[in-house]
Amino acid sequence: MNGLLRSETRKLTTTRLWLGLLAGGVALVALYVLVIAFTAGNDARARDVLPALSSPAAVRTVYGVPAEVGYLMPLILGVTIICTEYRHRTITPTLLATPRRARVLLAKVVVAAGAGFLMGVVLTFVAAALGAAAIAARGYPVLLTSDGVPRLLGLMTVALGVWCVFGLGFGALLRNQVAAVVSAIALVTIVDGLLALLLRWIHLGTVAQYLPGSASRAIINPATTRGAELLPWWGGALVLLAWGLGTAAVGSFVTLRRDVT
């Protein structure tokens, strides 16, 4: 298994994609952190959406940017970990070297979790450092050690690892890289939200909180939920973990049986 983990790690590090996604993630997180930090509380009408940064819940919106948007990068990374093998047909030499497919998939899940976690560490660090600087610049206390913030920072690193595993499972189901990346992003950014709205509309808002996007947001435990019902932070973490492992399990199960033509 050690050899397989090394093999999967080499696959990641010998191409440049991870670097591009990490750079994109850093840029995305930095942009969101700055925009949120410098607009929060400015507009009287929007205060219930973006309240002033005087409460722990409000600063969590700034520090929680990796879980709000940064997770897209480990999600894409996870999709590509499996889809690139189908795209360039390297799945053939991979399965020839290790015909026991379950072991290949297990190694991929472990490497995806690790890579997503490391990405999470970097993005969380960027959000914390840049967020604290921006909040301080606006004259508010940075509240980095206050209510729920350290927990949020720690949980986000793990959550991004889970998102990478979710992407892996999703990619294993679709196999086509472009289709899988586009639909994974659409699923978490559009479908998830629309479904939540729809569920709330038919008074099933309690169901909506179990969607992956809502579960991820619950970890932030933000000041305002814009009318959505969210699980407590630990519930969100567990539900997100279930989504990641469940999707990976279904994707693996399908991959075990499928012919590689």
Partner: peptide
């Protein structure tokens, strides 16, 4: 079957690791 962005040597080293 190769990843176009990977070097020939790295392609083989990926397989070396998997096969021990």
């Amino acid at each position: 079957s190769f990843h176009p962005g990977r070097t020939a040597r790295d392609h083989l080293r990926v397989l070396c690791a998997a096969a021990g």
